[in-house]
């Protein structure tokens, strides 16, 4: 709550405000959180610059150099058809990160307005939205995606859409309860009395004020979406095989059974590291909010023996 009330604070120049925001972020993340953030930035960099930094064409086969050992021309070796593993991992970052990003983005775009409208209007709308979110929450995301793939076709688009629906409650429930708390605050009543409309108050005041709470959910939802989408690709239901994707790369049973597990291990490590980093960031962002609330509560000074 102390984070975003820019309208009430004294005039601040833009760069100093940006610096302050950066410092706050650093304080909230801590040292390990910053390392996690750097890892995520590195992965995003790999995804964005894949055509530039990948040493080889990810789909170019070289049947004379099958299962090449790491080193030399192929830093991490080659797979069963002589494709460069490093290049496939780098290109795989694209599908592996863009998919979950779309899932989270879609569920935010639908979920936030839904949550704000429910919290603002209350009454039957809130009851219906709440019940709807409960029902969606009780459907396992993987099953929703499998059903969607069965109806349409295996591929990233149906899987991403289905997961976005299944992930609605993750964001919307948190946003709704945070918005309900804000709605009860005196400043909202004051704005209403001044004649501000509901939509304007929601967009200009409620939304910024619930951002810290919802923001902490985003990395966690992203991590879960990454795991679910990679699992679906592993099952052959989302990203399809010749295309490089971390989930697809883990599914190389043939190589594993022949004792060539390096590609599986590399892709697995990338998934695990990215998921752990995201969860750590989410934990730090959310944990700080919790700690602050505790600190602000009236507490007896000193320990009673």
């Amino acid at each position: 709550m102390t984070l975003t009330q820019p309208s009430l604070t004294a005039v601040e120049s833009a760069p100093s405000r940006a610096n302050a925001a950066g410092r706050r972020l650093r304080n909230r993340l801590g040292a390990t959180g910053l390392v996690a953030l750097c890892w995520i930035a590195l992965m995003i960099g790999c995804a964005a610059l894949a055509p530039v930094i990948a040493p080889h064409d990810p789909n170019a086969q070289d049947l004379l150099h099958v299962y090449a050992a790491p080193g030399g021309d192929h830093l991490l070796g080659t797979d069963g058809t002589g494709r460069d593993i490093l290049s496939r991992l780098i290109w795989g970052a694209r599908t592996s990160l863009v998919g979950p990003a779309l899932v989270v983005l879609l569920s935010l775009v639908v979920g936030l307005p839904l949550a704000l409208a429910a919290a603002w209007r209350g009454g039957w709308l809130d009851a219906v939205v709440g019940r709807f979110l409960d029902i969606v929450f009780s459907l396992p995301a993987i099953l929703v995606a499998v059903l969607a793939v069965a109806v349409f076709r295996p591929g990233p688009a149906p899987a991403i859409l289905a997961l976005a629906v299944a992930y609605l409650p993750y964001v919307a429930r948190v946003a709704r309860s945070a918005a309900l708390r804000q709605r009860a605050m005196p400043y909202v009543a004051a704005l209403t009395v001044q004649g501000h409309g509901g939509v304007a108050i929601c967009a200009r005041h409620l939304l910024p004020n619930i951002t810290p709470v919802v923001g902490a959910q985003i990395p966690i939802a992203f991590a879960n979406a990454l795991m679910d989408l990679a699992a679906l690709s592993f099952l052959g239901l989302a990203v399809q095989s010749p295309q490089a994707d971390w989930g697809v790369l883990v599914n190389d049973a043939q190589a594993v059974l022949q004792g060539h597990s390096s590609q599986v291990v590399y892709a697995g490590v990338l998934i695990i590291a990215t998921v752990v980093a995201l969860m750590l960031i989410g934990d730090r962002l959310g944990g700080d909010i919790r700690r602050r609330r505790v600190r602000r509560a009236p507490q007896p000074t000193g320990r009673t023996p």
Binding site: A223, M227, A230, A231, F234, L235, G247, V250, N251, D252, A253, V256, L257, G259, S261, V264, V265, A267, G268, I271, I272, A273, V275, V276, M279, L280
Partner: peptide, 19 residues
């Protein structure tokens, strides 16, 4: 536990099979 919480079942399965 913080690290293991990020190990999806299919990764554990593939690596487990290979090892």
């Amino acid at each position: 536990t913080a690290v293991v919480a990020g190990v999806p079942a299919f990764v554990a399965a593939s690596v487990g099979i290979s090892v």
